[in-house]
Structures are given as C-alpha cells and as structure tokens.
Nucleic acid binder design. Sequence first.
DNA 1: GACGCTGAGACGGTTTTCGTCTTATCGTCT
DNA 2: AGACGATAAGACGAAAACCGTCTCAGCGTC
Lengths: 200, 200
Amino acid sequence: MVGDDLDTRILDAAKRCCEQWGVAKVTIDDIVAASGASRATIYRLFPGGKDVLFEALRVRELTDFFDVLTAAVSAGGDGDGEPDDVESLIVRLVTTATAELRNDQHLAIMLATAPGETLGQLTVEGLPRIIRVAADYLVPLVKPHIEPLDPALLIDLLVRLTISYFLAPSDLVDLGDPRSARAVLRPALHAYLNGHPTAC
Amino acid sequence: MVGDDLDTRILDAAKRCCEQWGVAKVTIDDIVAASGASRATIYRLFPGGKDVLFEALRVRELTDFFDVLTAAVSAGGDGDGEPDDVESLIVRLVTTATAELRNDQHLAIMLATAPGETLGQLTVEGLPRIIRVAADYLVPLVKPHIEPLDPALLIDLLVRLTISYFLAPSDLVDLGDPRSARAVLRPALHAYLNGHPTAC
DNA sequence: GACGCTGAGACGGTTTTCGTCTTATCGTCT
DNA sequence: AGACGATAAGACGAAAACCGTCTCAGCGTC
C-alpha cells in the first residue's frame, strides 16, 4: 500500500474520503491530508482538480470491476476447453457481476452514506460510461457466439438489467442465482438471437 | 415525527446530517434543507448557531440516554418492593448502561463515520458533561444506600469504567454480563464503602 | 384586523476552498 | 560532486461557501 504509485495513493485517499463524507463534502485539502501528497502534486497528476480526480477514480473502480469480472468468468469456464453455449456464458456473466456488486464494500458504504450521489452514478450520469466500459470488456467475449448480431446492444441490455436487479431486488428474480438468471434470460435471449430484439 | 415540535424536528435533522457527514462537515444550510425549517427559525431557537445547536443535541441525546437507563433500572428492580443491596443496584446500573450503549444505533454510526469527533465527545471534551448528567440522574438513586459517603465519586468512577469497557472491550471483563460485572465491581465497591476509595 | 410564528431568501462580512506559484528537500543519474 | 526531476510544504490572490442578520410575505390565532 505504501509503496504504490503516487496516483494510486492519491486515488486511494480520495476513495477513503469519499466513504467518510461523500463526494460533495470532500475537498482537495482533505485528499492532501489523507494521501500525504502535496497540493501541487495532486494538481500536476490530475489537472482540473476534484472533477478530474474523481473522474479518474470512477474509471479506475470501473476497470477494476470488469478486470475481476472477466477474470472470474474466463477462469470459471466449466471445462475451459470447449466454449460453452451463449446462454451459459451470459448467465455466468450476469450472476458473477451480481455477486461482485453485492460484495463490493466500497459501493455499499457509498450507497449508505451518499445515496443520491451514488445512485446517480449507477443510473444516470454514470450509466453511459458503465455501458461503454462494459462493452469494451465484454463485446469481444460474446461477439464470436452471436455473430452477425450486434453484441453491443446485448451488453447494454444486460448492464441495465443487472444494475436494476442489484439496486432493487425482486421477489421473482435473483440474478445472483444461475438457475433464476437462466430462467429470466433464456426467453429474451432466444428472441434476440432470432432477430426479435426484446420490445422496448 | 412530522407533528413534533420545531426544535425536535431541527435536532432530528441535525442528527441525521451528523450521521451522514460528521459534525465537522455539517453546515447550517444542510440542517435547513434537512429539517425544512428556515434559517431564521434555527437561529431564533438556537441563538449562537451550530455550536449551540449541536450542544443542545448532545444534551438531548444524553438525557434521553439516562431517561431510558433510569427507567429500565427502576422497573427492573427484582421484587420492586424491598430495595436491593447497593451491589445489585450498581451492577444493574452498569450492565444496563452497557447494553444501552451497545444498542445505540446513532452512536455506532457516529463511531464509524467520524471516530475522532465521537471519541472526543466520549472521552475528553464531552466526558465532564456526561459525568455531570450521570450524577444528576444517579446520585439520588444510590445516595440512600451508601450514606454518608459521597455518591458523586462513585458515579464518576462507574461512568469512566463503563465507557472504557464499551469502547475497548476486555477479554477478562464483560460489563454487559451481570455475573462478570459483579465480580469486577464487588471488591472495588467494598473497598470504597469501607473508606478506601480505589487507588488511583 | 392585529399579532406572533414561520418560511423564503436577500445581504454584507467572514472563512474556506481553489488553483497557481515559489522554495527547499530528496533521490537519481551522469 | 554536481545537475536534474520529482515531490512536500506552504504562501498567495481569487472565487466560492458559509455565516449571522435582516426584511418581508403568508398563515393561523385571538
């Protein structure tokens, strides 16, 4: 932790400050105090101040998330020689992502201490980026299985569903459970693959 | 909750703000927004601003605490006709107070989100007031049993012990457990009653 | 209708925060 | 050793946030 890069140290400090006070209440000086870096250094590494810094933090959190997700999904291929069918791949993506969200300590704290800010990042301002990064990571994974259809649309849909069921769990569906996830996704997925993208 | 007194509404709002951001980061405008009261009203009810307001909040929390404590201890008198011996009374006080501290949701949140501030209120700046209020409530309870000794000294001691064991539980003592509490308190109590206030 | 209480918010003064800049220190490379 | 880049510390003026007070309008009560 101590020997990390300077920018990592600063982002970690910003993350801690965030958890304590919420983005809105954190000042650059708080991050200076928490990171041990000097004000000048912070502005050199993140020119633009708080906005740029927290933007960088969000990007890092997001890529970390998808690094873990893709690693877990790739490693978890059952036989790991023969690729599974699309449906199994999708189910594994969704269930793993759901589990990762539910285990995310930082996210839980942020939702508890600054629900407004955090919900915004998950559902409004932040959603386009989430979908973009998700596409970067996951399109290559699913594309070979569903060509020639557009994989980006599928990912877009899955991201929205996963986040919605994470934020507001349903009595009828549990996307953390492979059985339930498969039951929900199968019809939509087949419709999609047969050229009838789900209504909406 | 809505029909409460204005000052109660404002103090409740201040409490919520506190839990979210810690006293240091809360502004009058935050409390205005959270309470629905206007800035003018807040300054009229708490002339002096944030300091006075949070002071009032601490006093309220404190008196609430001891209201609950004395009610529980009084009601919990085993036969409730014949008064117990001093030792049993003291043990009941300490165990009940410990349980109340451990169940205090607000206190737990404050200790988690603003440990520095909160610890200060429990151990340094705030301790004199805690002891003073404790004395107001508890001296009448114990005085009849230990006259002609000074009950204030005993209360002072018990407050400090209870807070210390709450903040830093020991492997050897559990002041939430009557058996353990009695074992710890009996020797000190007897020494005190026999005119040898515990060394220190 | 007069009166008191309250919410809304304007206002100037103060404090905090920002973003830049300078200086001193430290480690590294030559 | 000496030059150099990176960094911590913190000074500085400008901008923003915050404070405490004040006015005013709305609303219920007498």
